[in-house]
Design a protein around this nucleic acid. Structure first.
Length: 574
RNA sequence: CGGGGCGUAGCGUAGUGGCUAGCGCGCCUGCUUUGGGAGCAGGAGACCGGAGGUUCGAAUCCUCUCGCCCCGACCA
């Protein structure tokens, strides 16, 4: 039983000055966490109980799915990361340290190597597979910008699992098992979430999905089709456009368009001098970029920007991607800023990339590669040839769903889980093979699956809080029932204690506000701020043999005879 | 790493060169109060983020530095 009279807790009346998002603000105010440094937090009793409740649910669902828990050290020697070359490749996000003898160590940001190497050292037969193992471990990443309290910390608690299979079908089954276990887990945690397609990355056909908890302060943007349920990370959103028959379109025509280096100015001139009816979406924007030192042009409709994040995600293998700067134009005098067109890409030394919206046969107004001139009716396939199609234009609310063409909505979310099929690349690199039926070594295929446990505390707080404070789902609240005793006599306090004991005997988790010196107002405010689902008040109405039961989430209040209280309260719970 | 903002008591803050750094919350003592963050009285608690400088005099001005928050870049 958590007794407020002795609980190590101090709630704050004012919002902390350094907290902006609701979860951070409330978790600090309600005495769950305290900041130690940027992205590093201490957990007070209420917070730690909540964190462990989430951990318990995650562990229970992993175990129920037949995955086995292991535990690796957070402190690892450099060698563990040397084999996969990540000691050098991981970069400044890796916390590195030295031991007394000068040896290099690191605080693990993730444990792929350790899992892979452990399986390699224990198993060597196809008969041992499939295998799924997991751990719940503190991870360390020296984030360039920790943010939003415990949503993005430098130290955080994560559940990570790995599956090991001999065949692609096996991997698919392991992946689906994890997917199902994640659905159960997040449902039990009382979260709203969407499962969205994520970038499969360089490995081609592998599946990857993210579990996103929608909330306004989320860092991730995703699209959702409310009709067919299609959901995708913005980077992974697919654009479906039909090609057009261009045979009836007249030949390209060069026109004089002095002083029109921008899309807006061009549209104005077109409407004034060339018949009108033009809009930005009729023009072709040629965005010049430098990709790993090579000049490229990305074509998007004039009414859209290039989404660099999306572009980069869809150009696997490209490490550095940046917009053309004045210095680049200076180095390439043939490229006329504001008047670039795709027609002469080859002579200009540009690799031509295009968003799928620039479909074969579509006709555009674009630059003529001469200052003060544009070209009308420039047709893809006839007047220029695209080297590579790549999803690159910004995604907008109302864009067509690739599955059913319904306008999609765009929303923000916190990533709380990620599942993906790693395939054989990792096992190959670390030499994880097993002997098959014929005694031949086969490279194992792997899946990797993560849940942000500490992040889930914040995500749930974000989704469930209200103006009064936190408002936890029953299973993860510090207690199921928060009993408040008020008055100055002993009776309400004695009665409240007895009720609390009775409820505990029934297996309920109870918090009791037995502070004699705090006023009723303070106790009510604290109870609401702390956010346990059921608040029971033992006070005034005790004179009539009644107690009051309040549901935190809905604000509903009811009275119950003291004799029936435990049963009435229990009926409101799972 | 670029842009913006901020460091004054446990928390929130006032204080643009001049008395002993002010206020609210919280904390301690006493009395009163007890159904919506009670009242009165008394009290403890601050090397004003740090270092250097300017000045008769610095929380206040200058230089450097450390830290924190937000937007972007980056990132599960």
């Amino acid at each position: 039983m958590l007794k407020m009279s002795t609980l190590f807790l101090r709630t704050l009346r004012d919002d902390p000055a350094d907290a902006e998002v609701a979860s951070h603000r409330l978790l600090v105010r309600a005495g769950y966490v305290r900041r130690v440094a940027a992205g590093i937090y201490s957990w007070l009793p209420l917070g730690y109980i909540t964190l462990r409740n989430i951990e318990r649910v995650v562990r229970a669902e992993m175990d129920a799915a037949g995955f086995q828990e292991v535990h690796f050290p957070a402190l690892l020697p450099r060698e563990a990361y040397e084999q996969s070359n990540r000691w050098t490749e991981y970069g400044p996000d890796l916390f590195r340290l030295k031991d007394r003898k000068g040896g290099d160590y690191l605080l693990a940001p993730t444990h792929e190597e350790m899992f892979t190497l452990m399986v390699k050292s224990e198993y060597s037969s196809y008969k041992d597979l499939p295998l799924s193992i997991y751990q719940i471990q503190t991870k360390y990443r020296d984030e360039p910008r920790p943010r939003s309290g415990i949503i993005r910390g430098r130290e955080f608690l994560m559940k990570d699992s790995y599956s090991f299979d001999l065949t692609d079908e096996g991997l698919e089954a392991s992946y689906n098992a994890h997917r199902a276990a994640y659905i159960k887990t997040f449902d039990r945690l009382g979260m709203k979430y969407n499962i969205v397609s994520a970038m499969s990355g360089a490995m081609g056909g592998s599946r990857s999905e993210e579990f996103l908890a929608p909330c306004a302060t989320g860092e991730d943007t995703y699209v959702l089709c409310e009709k067919c349920g299609y959901a995708a990370n913005v980077e992974a959103m697919q654009t479906v456009v039909a090609s057009v028959d261009e045979s009836a379109i007249e030949a390209m025509q060069i026109i004089d368009t002095p002083n029109t280096p921008t899309i807006d100015s061009l549209v104005e001139v077109l409407n004034a001098n060339y018949g009108g009816g033009f809009s930005a979406s009729d023009t072709l924007k040629n965005v010049l970029l430098v990709a790993d030192g090579k000049n490229i042009s990305v074509l998007v409709p004039g009414d859209r920007e290039v989404d660099l994040k999306r572009l980069q995600a869809n150009m696997p293998g490209v490490l550095e991607l940046r917009l053309f700067e004045d210095a680049d134009f200076a180095k390439n005098p043939k490229l006329v800023k504001g008047y670039v067109g795709p027609q002469d890409a080859q002579t200009l030394g540009l690799a031509l990339y295009a968003d799928p919206r620039i479909a074969l046969g579509t006709s555009w107004v674009t630059g003529a590669n001469k200052s003060g001139q544009h070209a009308l009716r420039v047709v893809n396939g006839r007047d220029f040839k695209v080297d590579t199609y790549v999803e690159s234009a910004e995604v907008r609310q109302g864009d067509a769903c690739p599955q059913c063409s319904t306008p999609v909505v765009i929303d923000r979310a916190i990533e709380i889980g990620h599942i993906f099929q790693l395939g054989r690349k990792y096992a190959q690199a670390l030499g994880l093979t097993v002997l098959d039926r014929d005694g031949k070594p086969q490279v194992v295929t792997m899946g990797s699956y993560g849940i942000g446990v500490s992040r889930a505390v914040a995500a749930i707080a974000e989704q469930t809080h209200d103006d009064l404070g936190l408002c936890w789902p029953e299973e993860i609240a510090p207690a199921q029932i928060h009993i408040v005793a008020t008055g100055k006599e002993d009776l309400p306090f004695d009665t409240a204690l007895k009720l609390a004991e009775e409820l505990e005997k029934m297996g309920k988790r109870v918090m009791l506000d037995d502070r004699r010196d705090a006023s009723p107002g303070v106790k009510f405010k604290d109870a609401e701020l702390i956010g346990n689902p059921i608040i029971v008040v033992v006070g005034k109405s005790l004179a009539e043999g009644m107690i009051e039961i309040r549901v935190r989430k809905t604000g509903e209040r009811s009275e119950s005879l003291l004799a029936d209280a435990a049963q009435s309260i229990s009926n409101l719970l799972m």
